[in-house]
Simulated assay, not measured.
Amino acid sequence: MCVRVCVDTGAVFACGDNKSGQCGLGNTTPQVLKPTRIRYSGAPIVKVGCGAEFSMILDCNGSLHSFGLPEYGQLGHNTDGKYFVTSTKLSYHFETVPKHIALFFEKSKEGHVTPVKDVVIVDFSCGNNHTVAIDSKKRAYSWGFGGFGRLGHAEQRDESVPRLIKYFDSQARGVRSVHCGATYSLAVNEHRALFLFGQTKRTGEANMYPKPVQDLSVIAADDTLIAWGVSPTYGELGTGEITKSSARPKEVTRMEGVLVTQVAMGYSHTLLLADDTDQPTRQKLDTMPTFTP
């Protein structure tokens, strides 16, 4: 996995695992030990994202660029990059520098494919091997590995080109944010309803298309934090408990009154970004312990 840093000029730096070219340096050097500027000379970058072995960057003009492993179509370039080195050895054509994602499409129930024009991406999120993005018209697209329905198209096939999620185009118009896990995706619409598609547990039913998370329909989360998940054995949900699982959403009471602007989760830990310019948040943060590295 690689890590990227954006600076004020919109430049991007990368370091870490690069065996699939996911650091965007133009090579597949196995390890990049120091932050190195990627090989990109386009418009300033405003957001970066990391999958398991691929990366995604968004420029200020609303264009997405991807690089790394194309195995499941997660780069969005209409290919999985597979080729045979020998009759028995399979390999991939890695994208070692950022490549623009040029095509977005929608598919009818009858299977007719139509390009979607004038797509300006405003936000996106990467899972291990898939991506969900939203455009300036609040439409959602997904592509990559389709197992367990994590792409929201009511089927499990992989998509190698960004495909419009028809559910949001017809029944829940206006997607405002998206968030991807390893085997699932989350989307929040303009009415602040949360939708889940994919599978959050290792066993059990998978949501093949976006379904509302009913438990959150009566919870106002503007000034608190809601958490749930399977096997929070390291305390990553922040509820103060180490339990086997927490399938039902719970309020993280310690963060009540704190304006949390962003949440990022790894396999077993969580980072929260709070707006300390908000006076109630500032007062709350002043009462919390501070750890200096």
Rank of each mutant, 00 (worst) to 15 (best):
T253E: 13
L225Y: 02
V5Q: 06
P98C: 00
A221Q: 04
A247R: 13
P232N: 00
E110L: 13
G81F: 02
F148C: 09
E236G: 06
G127R: 03
A102P: 05
T183D: 00
L164V: 03
S20M: 14
V32S: 03
L151F: 05
A182G: 11
C50H: 06
Y267L: 13
V132G: 03
A52G: 13
K82V: 12
K211G: 07
D286C: 15
C50G: 02
T261F: 09
Q31I: 15
A11T: 13
A182Q: 10
K109T: 06
E236K: 12
S170L: 12
D123R: 01
H93I: 09
D118I: 04
G111V: 02
K138G: 07
V218I: 14
P212H: 09
G42N: 04
Y167W: 08
L196A: 06
V213D: 02
A221S: 11
N129V: 05
M265V: 14
M208L: 15
D17R: 12
K47R: 10
A140N: 03
L151W: 00
T281E: 06
P249K: 02
I219W: 05
E159W: 10
S87P: 06
F195K: 11
I165S: 07
S55E: 04
G257Q: 01
M255T: 03
L103N: 14
D158Y: 10
G149N: 02
T79G: 02
T29K: 15
K47D: 15
P35R: 14
G21R: 07
M1E: 08
G235P: 11
E205R: 12
K211W: 11
P35C: 05
F94R: 07
T28D: 08
V119T: 01
T270R: 03
T253A: 13
P232E: 09
Y184C: 05
R163Q: 06
D118K: 11
K99I: 08
M255G: 01
F94L: 14
R282V: 00
G26L: 10
N207G: 04
G51V: 03
P98S: 05
